[in-house]
């Protein structure tokens, strides 16, 4: 099997990995780096459990060839928050709003809310519903997820930081 070595930036650090052509980003992040926050569930880019950021944009890791990560900047849920263990405001808002049950889809939602708030710091309910409409939560914590998104937006605005 052809193995290729690729270099990219993972959560702010320069890294290398050897990947096989058929591997997707989730395969690589799980096996090569032990990162488990992004997970493959539906396998079709529909549920968002595998959401990671590539060059600042949310993508479905399960539909992204690992090989294509060469030279990119990849950010995962594990890269959020401070080195001292403080949580990102979006993560904290998810806790405070009770925006999860089983937690399997939660990192994907958090990563989506991160790019949503980067694009639109004060999103309307309609914007939130459309932006997150491609993420599925079978426990259906949807009302709480919308509340968490708005709570995070308010807190970020109040603190004056991204």
């Amino acid at each position: 099997m052809t193995t290729r070595h690729i270099s990219f930036t993972l959560n702010g650090r320069a890294v290398t990995a050897s990947v096989q052509p058929h591997e997707n980003l989730i395969d690589m992040l799980t096996t090569a780096f032990g990162l488990r926050g992004a997970r493959e569930s539906c396998g079709q880019g529909l549920c968002g459990c595998c959401t990671v950021h590539v060059d600042g944009q949310a993508v479905s890791g399960c539909l992204f060839l690992a090989d294509m990560a060469e030279g990119t900047r990849i950010d995962t849920i594990e890269g959020l928050g401070g080195a001292d263990g403080t949580l990102d405001p979006v993560q904290q808002a998810f806790i405070d709003a009770g925006a999860f049950q089983c937690g399997f889809c939660t990192p994907g939602f958090v990563m989506m809310v991160k790019t949503l708030l980067a694009d639109d710091p004060d999103p309307s309910d309609d914007t939130i519903r459309h932006y997150l409409s491609g993420n599925l939560c079978r426990c259906s914590a949807y009302p709480e997820i919308v509340a968490a998104t708005k709570l995070a937006a308010r807190r970020i605005a109040a603190e004056g930081r991204p």
């Binding site: 880019g45 529909l46 968002g48 959401t51 944009q57 949310a58 993508v59 479905s60 539909l63 992204f64 989506m112 790019t115 459309h130 932006y131 409409s133 491609g134 993420n135």
Partner: peptide, 12 residues
Amino acid sequence: MKNLANVRVRNV
């Protein structure tokens, strides 16, 4: 675009 697939697919 708003109702086409989802944000992640549209990004790629």
